[in-house]
Write a protein that binds this DNA or RNA. Structure first.
Length: 87
DNA sequence: ATAATGACGTGAT
DNA sequence: AATCACGCCATTA
């Protein structure tokens, strides 16, 4: 199912890396299903899926059911910094 | 099976 | 550059 594929791809996102919903959708095999991707996470998010690494194509964030967009942004910043600084 | 929703994207104004 | 509107796809009710 597309959902499973998307989750799998999101789980494959390395730390400090951020993919856009469009990219994920494309990688899942359905380019253009960016909305569907976001919808999938929203309705069926898996604790093992770092969905916070998935952002919009604009580079902005959108939502997060786990603390809000703010927490998501902080998390991304942290991961990015860790990736750059030192691993 | 159909209708409505949404964590999007792109184009136009 | 920012905002509005429209279109798209899969999921869920």
């Amino acid at each position: 199912m597309f959902k499973d594929r998307v989750l799998r791809i999101v789980a494959s996102i390395p730390s400090g890396k951020t993919l856009s919903y469009k990219e994920v959708a494309e990688a899942a095999g359905s380019p253009g299903a960016a909305r569907a991707v976001g919808n999938i996470m929203k309705g069926n998010y898996n604790p093992a899926i770092p969905c916070h690494r998935v952002i919009r194509s604009d580079g902005k964030l959108c939502g997060y059911n786990r603390g809000g967009t703010e927490a998501k942004r902080a998390l991304l910043e942290k991961e990015k910094l860790s990736q750059i600084v030192g691993k």
